[in-house]
Each structure stands twice: as structure tokens, then as C-alpha cells.
Amino acid sequence: MFTGIVEVTGRVESLMFREGGARLVLKVGPMAGELSLGESVACNGCCLTVTDFDGAAGTAAFDLLIETLRVTSLGELKEGSLVNLERSLRIGDRLSGHFVQGHVDTTAEVLVLEKVREDHQFTVELPQAWAALVVHKGSICVDGMSLTIAQLEEDRMTFWITPHTFAVTNLAALSEGGMVNLEFDMLAKHMQRLVSLGR
């Protein structure tokens, strides 16, 4: 379980594709010395398991399954790409974002990313298959960031990004036309399921 509050950004050291998936190695800096094997880390919002780490080198490795590559944008990462990182929530931690499982539902295209005075307007495609799960002023996890929907249209969601969020996440490395991971609110998904079953 995560909160969508990015702790640090890492950089892709390598992404090696192989039969059955891929192996992702990230430069995570001092975080590497705090990790343990089998620990969960949200990487651009996708819950991944630490399969290796090197505190001296500041790296951590994760194995990506075929399903992970199919559902997320992680397979499009390049050497040097910025990745949002968040370690799992501990009991007693403050919940500054919202409950995030790290189970990416789909990807979406970045439609607008531009500076407006001191802030940034960030507009992302809203896939129609998931449109019923979002509301104006509701929360959604975008590339591991808990964001509030400031403007909701039929085919898009707009967020306003503060200078702090822009500085400490991968947003500065994103561009219009790029893809981001989306995870919709888990309570909304459970409610939709119950309604569809007529319970």
C-alpha cells in the first residue's frame, strides 16, 4: 500500500528485456542502503519487488513480468529516464495523498504540460473504459503521484502542479505525447464491481 507521495526520483541505469519480461535497474541513491530483498517499491506508480540492491553503488533492481510490461509504460523507459519512487506505507505514517495499491490500471497520453505563471497545467487523456471511476476534485494516481482532478472533461483530466511537486517528481522529464501510468481509486472500483453484480 502506498500514498502517491513521491519520496525521491531514480534514474534508469538499464532495462534489459528477456524471455518472460525484463529486468529494470535504477539508480536510487541513499535509498538503496535502506532497502531489503522482497520489499515493495512503487516505480512510476507500479508496485515492484526489490530483487537486488547495492548500497555502495546506490542501485536497486526489479523484475518486470510480461503483464507488467503490457499494462504499464515501464517498458518504454530509456537509460537516464526519471522514475518516481515511493516505499510502502508503514502503520502510523501520515497519509498525505490517498490509498494507492501500486496496481496500474492502464496508461494514458500526456496532452498538455505547460507552465502557467509559477505552476504547471498538466492534462492527461481519460480512457473511456475508466471514465466512470473519476470525479471532479477526486484523487487519481498518475505515474505514482496522488493528484487532484481540477478539471474533468469527457476525454481528459487536468491537474494543477505546484512548483514543489514539479521539482521533486519526474514531471520535468515528461513531454506532450508521452505515456503515464494511471491507477484509479480502489474504493470506486469496488463500488463499480458491486453495482455491476447487483449486490
Results as ranks from 00 to 15, higher is better:
Leu89Gln: 12
Gln121Val: 12
Ala61Asp: 14
Val110Phe: 08
Leu77Tyr: 09
Leu126Arg: 09
Val100Ile: 14
Phe62Ile: 08
Gly55Leu: 13
Leu89Arg: 11
Gln121Ile: 13
Glu76Tyr: 09
Glu109Ser: 14
Gly55Thr: 14
Asp119Ala: 10
Thr68Gly: 01
Thr51Asp: 09
Ser96His: 14
Gly102Arg: 01
Gly80Trp: 05
Phe99Glu: 00
Asp93His: 07
Val83Cys: 04
Arg94Ile: 11
Ala60Lys: 00
Ala108Leu: 10
His120Ile: 08
Leu48Phe: 05
Ser73Met: 06
Gly58Asp: 12
Ser96Glu: 13
Thr123Cys: 13
Gln121His: 12
Val124Gln: 08
Ile91Leu: 14
Leu82Ile: 15
Glu86Leu: 01
His98Glu: 01
Leu89Ala: 13
Glu67Trp: 11
Val116His: 13
His98Tyr: 01
Leu111Thr: 03
Asp105Arg: 02
Leu95Ser: 11
Phe99Ser: 01
Arg87Val: 12
Val104Met: 05
Asp119Met: 11
Phe122Arg: 03
Glu79Thr: 15
Ser81Thr: 11
Lys78Gly: 09
Ser81Met: 13
Ser96Lys: 09
Leu69Trp: 01
Thr123Phe: 07
Val116Arg: 14
Gln121Phe: 15
Asn84Ser: 04
Thr49Met: 02
Leu89Gly: 08
Ser88His: 08
Thr106Asn: 04
Phe122Tyr: 07
Glu76Met: 08
Arg94Phe: 13
Glu114Pro: 00
Val50Leu: 05
Lys78Ile: 09
Val112Thr: 12
Glu114Gln: 08
Phe53Thr: 10
Leu69Asn: 03
Gly92Phe: 14
Gly75Phe: 07
